[in-house]
Design a protein around this nucleic acid. Structure first.
Lengths: 233, 233
DNA sequence: TTTTACTCTATGTCTAAACTTATTTTGGCA
DNA sequence: TGCCAAAATAAGTTTAGACATAGAGTAAAA
């Protein structure tokens, strides 16, 4: 068996992966059941179960009671993205972090924001626009709405002094988050704040977080031109 | 306890999540150890272990031997993206799928592709350009390089008849994948194939897959303007 | 033939107990 | 005081055994 890690379960996942990649077990094939594999690998069934569940979560295997375990026919590609705190990302790249709050005020939310936050249109929320810099060069522009109704204590905060991102992370943990990536041509404001030309292609990340009180915050992040969001699997 | 699911482990994750969201346990706090929680919830330690490991994987908890379990201070947002097979995505949207192969030929790889595939520059690979349509409207443009050295059997395939994506998924499972999202202004070719104007912002996905023989394929997918890649957590 | 009821099976989950291992704490010694 | 070895601790992993449950297969009834 390919012993790629210390744990037996890990070794089993490696071996099963190898058999699939080497096409000993092909897409659609039914593989031996847990009890048989437990005997083959000389471990308890619970250990095989753990290994196969990991592979099922990855999307490599389909498991169903009574029907057994099959190699997935059309594995949808899954990728885990880690969206780091801006400041940490910039500092890890060896640059000096700074940020500037362009505007902080209470405003009634427009329809689009209301839809994303599942709130009635016109509700008064905190509206915040911030630019984050690495070594003085614009890194990303944030356009954020914060709902004091779901983030108690936010009302008195002056986000010129406190980083909104970090305040929220520490003070308003969420239960659910929606995310979407898209591309937009820089509008006049984006272009000015990111110090680029109007129309250049920007990677846009929109994220809305919810707790049991409703939407906490929604943010549109525009990254500087050329930025790439990396994921590995 | 908040019984959101049938399983005890799931119920424990819900309850722990609730305590964190309700700030009974705050960022940085050390939470009771597994044995204590097992007594509190009236389950075996292994069940608590399973629940807490799930939350640790989500990034909500930090766990270290002897040091105990702490609520993560700066939880990096993690999101799992599922990149569906184009055809399924289009058909699920209720549209009719079609595709057109623009070019299929053997070419020496340029430097950029060589770097991505970890292959020597100038190696001869299969180069493929395809447009995928939904109800006749361009959905995405694929620019793909395939390495026959890592995908045995690919040499004889006519990708005008067989969908490359699906052939690869079925015949060349991978062990590792690199992915990157970015935004680019449509060049003349992108614009023509996607039937949009030059310069419009396109979401670009680059993906390279590897097995034990090396890089299998690398692909640059340009989505039609306005497309958004969705993820939920 | 079709429907229904039952049986059987492979996975799902949990338990108690043991052992392993990383890491912190402590206490002895220089 | 500072350093090192030993002890303690909390998570990590595995095991054997048990029971639960979805759902495929089968046999009986309509």
């Amino acid at each position: 068996m390919t012993e790629r890690s210390s744990s037996k379960a890990q070794a089993i996942t490696s071996e099963v992966r190898r058999r699939i990649v080497d096409r000993e077990w092909r897409q659609g094939d039914r593989i031996p059941d847990e009890a048989e594999l437990a005997v083959e690998f000389g471990v308890a069934r619970a250990t095989v179960n753990k290994a196969l569940q990991m592979l099922a979560e990855e999307g490599l295997l389909d498991r169903k009671r009574r029907a057994g375990t099959h190699v997935t026919v059309n594995p949808a590609r899954k990728a885990t993205l880690t969206i780091p705190i801006v400041r940490e990302q910039i500092e890890q790249a060896g640059m000096e972090y700074s940020h500037r709050v362009i505007a902080q005020k209470e405003s009634p939310i427009p329809a689009e924001i209301a839809r994303r936050m599942e709130l009635p249109e016109g509700r008064l929320l905190i509206h915040l626009r911030t630019v984050h810099y690495g070594d003085g060069k614009p890194f990303q522009v944030e356009d954020r709405w914060i709902n004091p109704g779901a983030a108690p204590g936010v009302a008195g905060i002056d986000f010129h002094r406190v980083n909104a991102n970090e305040w929220l992370v520490r003070n308003a943990p969420w239960l659910r988050a929606d995310m979407a990536f898209s591309a937009e041509n820089a509008n006049a404001r984006d272009a000015r704040l990111l110090e680029t030309r109007q129309g250049s292609a920007l990677l846009i990340l929109q994220r809305t977080t919810f707790n049991d009180l409703g939407a906490i915050t929604t943010v549109r992040v525009a990254f500087h031109p050329g930025y790439a969001m990396i994921a590995t699997h």
